Each structure stands twice: as structure tokens, then as C-alpha cells.
Amino acid sequence: MASSRSGFAALLRAWRDRLSPADAGFTTTGGRRAPGLRREELAQLAGLSVDYVLRLEQGRARNPSAQVVGSLARALQVSRAERDQLYRSAGLLPPQDGTVSTHVPPGVQRLAARLGDLPIGVFTADWSLVWWNTMWSALHGDPAVLPAAERNLARALFGDGPAHASMRPVRSERGQDAFAESIVADLKDALSRYPGDARLDRLVRELRDVSDAFARLWSTRTAATQHATDRKTIRHPEIGDILLDCDVLVVPGADLRMVTYTAASGSSDAGKLELLRVTGGRTATALP
């Protein structure tokens, strides 16, 4: 067990040292002692405390959960083979084939990091949020404050837990019914492709139990359009209503969706996005 913990700790330190801050979305400045990520930057990316990351790197924190290891693997932008190595070094089985993948390829993360002026979130096939940037947090609220299982769009729409309670008001130009139907259609498609995924099956069963609307949509045989392009008005608690184009970009070969929000240059909504970028959505003053 001790050698396993030391192996896990060594991998964390080595892979943190090799990851460029720019590739992770951080602005590089002078005065860095090492070319890699700082410990607090890794903690921020993985949604963990700096103290916990320190204890993991020193081998003092035992038995990290599969969710923690998955978050660290995504934050470190490792390959699938390296991800599996990290799981095994933590004494865990790597994610199995035939289940919804939460792995975000390094290239996708680098691309998203270079679009840091836009709100971007990366979702799995079951609409679980597995990567987001600071602009996403500024627009929607920080997903890191939610338990990992609650970072799911279907739970936000239909659930009765923290995800639903924290979701900021969103109005879809296609209509809320069409938006809800598209998310259910996506979950149906995911379950047909991953019938052995216990987590996905549990999500569907839970939502059918707590939401009459979800149960009704799930039981309908009418085909629905899957969620793609839309225009949405998001009510921000500081800035007010922001009308944005929402585009869902499918990542080939990874079964991921990259969700982006943009506004036309020179528009008042583009100005509101810029205010979000500058202030992080905190102590902002609403634009006229």
C-alpha cells in the first residue's frame, strides 16, 4: 500500500511539472520557479483544496476516490493510457469500456483553454459537466461548489438537489419544453449506446422518481431533436439578462459535447460578457 501511494504521488508531481500553464488556461508571468503548474493551479482545475493536493503529492492522503482521480487526470491533461495508470496507482480499476467516458483529451482542453474569453463547458454523453473555464463559472456560477454527481444538466433541469437549486434562470429561444425534450432525447440515446453503465441507469431511475415531467418525456415514443444550437437568455444575479448564442460542438471520437456561449461583436450582450470576464461576475454593476 505504501509503494502504491508513493507511485501515485510521484505521478502527480511529475505530470504537474510537465503541464504548461498556458495549455491549462493560465496566464504565464515572470517569477515562476518551474515551468509546470503550481499546486494551487492544479487544485483549482481539479476542484480540490490545495491542502488535499499537497497531502496526495506527499503520500499522506490515502485512498482517493475514483471521482478525485478522474478530476486530477482531466486537470493534468493525460492520455487515456496515463489515466488508467493513475487509477491503478491509486488502487482503483480504470473506467471500463462500455461506460460513459469522462476523459477529456488534452487537445480538447488546450483548444478550450485558448478560447478563455468565452464561457465553455465540456459535457459527457449523459450531460455531466467534466471541464469548464472561469468564464463558465462567471456566467453560470462555480460548478466546483456542487458535489461531483450533481454537476449534470439533466439533474439541474429535472432533479430536486443542489444542481437544480443552484441553476440560474435560463430562457431558451426554442422554448423550455423543446430544450427539456432535447436533453431527455440525449439521455435516451446515451442509454441505448451504454446499456451497461450503472451510473447512467441510476441517473435515469432517480429522475423518473423525482420528476413527473422527466417521467412523462421518458415514456413518450415521439422522437425529439437532440440538443444543439440555441439562443438563450441567462439571468445573471449581478449583470441581469444576457442574450447569447449557445452552440453545442460534438468532439469526434470522444463522445463529448463542448458548449460555447457567444455574442455578436459590438452588441450590448458582448459588453456584458466582457464585464463578466473582467469581474468574474462578482461585484459587477449591471449595464444599461
Rank of each mutant, 00 (worst) to 15 (best):
A2Y: 01
S3H: 01
A9P: 05
A10V: 11
L11I: 00
L12W: 00
L12G: 07
R13K: 10
R16P: 03
S20W: 00
D23K: 08
G25Q: 12
T28Y: 01
T28H: 06
T29K: 12
G31P: 05
A34D: 04
A34T: 15
P35C: 07
G36V: 04
R39K: 12
L45C: 11
L45M: 12
L45I: 12
L54F: 05
R55A: 14
R55V: 03
R55E: 09
L56V: 07
Q58W: 01
A66P: 08
A66S: 15
V68I: 15
V68S: 07
L72Y: 06
L72P: 06
A73K: 11
A73V: 13
R74N: 14
R74I: 02
Q77H: 13
Y87R: 00
S89P: 02
G91V: 10
G91C: 06
G91Q: 04
D97I: 00
G98K: 07
V100H: 02
V100C: 03
V100I: 10
T102F: 13
T102D: 14
T102E: 14
P105Y: 08
P106Q: 04
Q109D: 01
A112W: 02
L115N: 11
L115C: 12
L118Y: 10
L118K: 10
P119D: 05
I120T: 09
I120S: 05
F123K: 01
F123Q: 02
A125M: 05
D126Q: 13
S128W: 02
V130Y: 07
N133A: 05
L139Q: 03
L139N: 02
A144L: 10
A144P: 08
P147K: 07
E150C: 10
N152S: 09
A154H: 05
R155L: 13
R155E: 04
G159W: 04
D160R: 13
G161T: 10
G161H: 11
A163N: 09
H164L: 06
S172Y: 15
R174D: 13
G175W: 13
D177P: 04
F179S: 08
A180K: 06
S182I: 14
I183V: 15
V184F: 03
A185G: 15
K188D: 10
K188H: 15
D189Q: 05
G196P: 02
G196Q: 07
D197V: 02
D197G: 05
L200Y: 00
R202P: 01
R202S: 14
L203H: 06
R205H: 12
L207F: 06
R208N: 11
S211D: 06
S211Q: 04
F214Y: 11
F214N: 04
R216D: 15
W218G: 06
S219P: 02
S219M: 05
T220G: 11
A228T: 15
T229Q: 11
R235Q: 10
R235G: 01
P237Q: 09
E238Q: 14
I239F: 13
G240H: 10
G240E: 13
I242V: 15
L243W: 01
L243H: 03
L244D: 07
L244A: 12
D245W: 00
L249E: 03
P252A: 09
G253F: 05
D255P: 00
R257Q: 08
R257M: 02
M258P: 01
V259G: 07
A264Y: 08
A264E: 15
S267R: 00
S267H: 01
D269Y: 09
A270S: 09
G271V: 00
K272N: 08
L276K: 01
L276H: 06
R277L: 11
G281Q: 05
G281E: 04
A284T: 00
T285N: 01
L287E: 10
